[in-house]
Design a protein around this nucleic acid. Structure first.
Length: 255
DNA sequence: ATGGCAGGAAGCTCCTGA
């Protein structure tokens, strides 16, 4: 089973890229973030024509998540239970017996921002929810845009980024705490190229200059990590004309 | 020290993202 996560930065703008990528990559399940699309405008027909079923939880302008799968999408839940949130950032579903959580973690904007406090509160609620989910769903994968670069090797210039949002100690502690619930960062289960990133700023030719961050992740429960045979970043998607600023991350699970 | 690129909504400019 091939599972993937991709922040598309507007599904409307990226639909052609998505369809081409589905045909080339042939993932069994995909978690999308930043669809920026109201449910009434979700391009379900085009995606279904490509052989995928869809579940979506979106809003206008900001946020929005979706799960695509080649087999049935079951037991769909939206949001973090018990955490009041106007922003549509979490969608969970079961596909082929695997529980998938699609997450768009808040950005935080800056350490001084109210949005940073929201990010940390959000991560605390997310982590406690997943602690329970792991008990009821041992085959659990949490895929998404975490907006956290877990370690300095995930940052093109750790000195320049030190103390900023996406790399701050409190955010990394929150990521470590989530991992400690019982997840492995699938990307780090395998040797990887140096300077592997999943996001590059649109400005300053950041992609061409390899100035990126690794902030999109596929976390796997121990039972799924034991079945994981590969994890890679599909960098080619960032090199296209009018790309998303994020590249997909793809993991393979043995049957 | 600042803005830089992109998308969306609104509407000819601003907010947000990361």
């Amino acid at each position: 089973m091939k599972i993937a996560t991709w922040n598309v930065n507007s599904l409307k703008v990226r639909l052609d890229h998505l369809l081409e990528w589905l045909a080339r990559c042939q993932p069994d399940a995909v978690c999308l973030q930043e669809t920026k699309t109201e449910d009434s405008a979700f391009p379900a027909a085009a995606i279904e024509a490509a052989g995928y079923r869809v579940a979506y939880f979106g809003q206008k302008t900001y946020n929005g998540v979706a799960i695509l799968a080649r087999s049935n999408i079951e037991s769909v839940t939206m949001g973090i239970p018990g955490f009041a949130d106007e922003q549509k950032r979490v969608l969970a579903a079961t596909v082929s017996g695997v529980r998938l959580v699609c997450a768009y973690v808040p950005n935080g904007q800056s350490l001084e921002s109210d949005k940073y406090r929201y990010k940390l509160d959000w991560l605390a609620a997310f982590t406690e929810w997943l602690r329970g989910e792991l008990v009821s769903h041992p085959l659990l994968a949490v895929l998404g845009d975490y907006n956290i670069a877990p370690a300095d090797e995930d940052v093109h210039d750790p000195v320049a980024w030190a103390g900023q949002v996406l790399v701050s100690p409190a955010e990394r502690e929150a990521f470590d705490k989530l991992r400690a619930v019982g997840f492995k960062d699938s990307f780090r289960l395998f040797p990887q190229p140096e300077r592997s990133f999943t996001w590059w700023d649109y400005r300053m030719n950041a992609f061409r200059r390899k100035m990126g961050l690794r902030i999109d992740h596929i976390l796997l429960s121990d039972a799924l990590a034991a079945r994981c045979t590969s994890c890679m970043v599909d960098v080619a998607m960032r090199a296209l004309e009018r790309p998303s600023d994020h590249a997909p991350v793809v993991a393979e699970l043995a049957d």
